[in-house]
């Protein structure tokens, strides 16, 4: 009985600490990045949940700066890879080189690439060739790299934060579906408002250098992730996740009308997993011990928008995945929808 009470008290304390740490990280990043508070929060949530993030936005919106500020706030080893068409896989993973030993002999030694960091920024990931992009696959999913038949574990925490530019599609290589599916969230960064732009000018054109201070550590991030996994989810809430994913499948009996018309392939089970994992973090940051419908809805768009493959008709009609998801979220019924009115 006492052990149970102690465990409960410890858990409550951990939840409060996690809330405070996450809030501190978000506030610290916000000292560098003006606006984009939702994108910052979603990015932090994704990191706590242990997922990789794909950030999409036109150049100059601070995507790279966001990732850099996160690395500073979390005190993580940070590396940046600028993806170009001539970038080779070994440039990412590292390679084996011949080294002269002290005894005069020569030996092979693995020289780790920039992937060996806690926070990897894959800048303009869609500019590299699919072969190079594929070099990230194993690292993103298995948290390991295999070079010359030797498996190298990546130190936790490990996150890949990729950015891509939705314009200037010439000379780019759209990410293959298998790789896109490995990103937990796809976030879109929009233009700042006039007030935010004014603030950006004041911060970045003066003499003072701005930078995020340390608010948490990589170990904190790992603990927060473990704590988030303990957050409960009720059956009727989990059912809502299933219904949302099912609504994007054109062949599903409960598919949304727009999905039937415009979707070629719906969301994979990874989308449901991502939603629940992220929803748990949202609940944790809200100080709750269970997942609610609003947590699921908050995670639905970033977790599903890049996992829906549209057909030609959608492209012809200018229909986006966000528009489909908006409709799906509106029409998919939750338990108690009728009771609360």
């Amino acid at each position: 009985m006492t052990a149970a009470v102690d465990s409960r008290d410890a858990t409550e304390r951990q939840v409060q600490e996690a809330r405070a740490l996450a809030a501190a990280v978000i506030e610290e990043v916000c000292t560098v990045i003006v606006g984009q508070r939702a994108a910052i929060r979603d990015t932090v949530v994704c990191l706590i949940a242990g997922g990789n993030v794909l950030i999409e936005g036109v150049p100059g919106l601070g995507k790279t700066e966001l990732v850099r500020a996160l690395g500073q706030a979390l005190d993580l080893r940070f590396s940046r890879i600028q993806f170009t068409p001539d970038l080779m896989p070994a440039d990412i993973t590292g390679t084996t080189v011949v080294m002269d030993a002290a005894d005069g002999q020569r030996a092979f030694r693995f020289e780790p690439g920039p992937i060996f960091a806690n926070l990897v920024l894959a800048d303009e990931i869609n500019r590299a060739t699919p072969k190079t992009q594929a070099a990230l696959l194993e690292a993103m999913q298995e948290r390991q790299v295999t070079v010359a038949r030797t498996v190298h574990r990546l130190d936790p925490p490990f996150f890949v934060m990729a950015t891509q530019n939705p314009i200037e599609m010439e000379g780019t290589y759209p990410l293959p579906e298998a790789q896109v599916d490995r990103f937990m969230f796809k976030l879109t960064v929009d233009y700042p408002s006039a007030e935010e732009l004014t603030e950006i000018l004041e911060r970045t054109t003066g003499a003072a250098e701005t930078g995020a201070g340390r608010a948490a550590s990589g170990a904190d991030l790992v603990r927060m992730g473990a704590l988030a996994r303990r957050v409960g989810i009720a059956a009727h809430v989990a059912r809502y996740v299933v219904d949302l994913v099912g609504a994007t499948h054109p062949a599903n009996p409960n598919a949304h009308e727009m999905s039937r018309q415009y979707v070629r392939y719906g969301c994979s089970p990874r989308a449901a997993q991502a939603m629940v994992r992220a929803a748990k973090v949202y609940a944790l940051l809200d100080g709750r011990y269970h997942v609610g419908f609003d947590d699921i809805r908050a995670a639905a768009r970033p977790a599903m928008r890049h996992r829906i493959l549209l057909n030609f008709e959608a492209e012809a009609d200018g229909v986006t995945t966000d528009r489909i998801l908006d409709d799906v979220l509106i029409t998919t019924r939750r338990a108690g929808d009728a009771a609360g009115r």
Binding site: A4, S7, R8, A10, T11, E12, V15, R230, V231, G232, I233, A234, A235, H236, V237, A238, A283, D286, R288, Y289, H290, V291, G292, F293, D294, D295, A335, G336
Partner: peptide, 22 residues
Amino acid sequence: LCERLSTAVVGARADPAMQALQ
């Protein structure tokens, strides 16, 4: 109420400490 009451009614898939807190 963010499904506080309904989750308490049906129970959440979580460890006992989290359930008790919930």
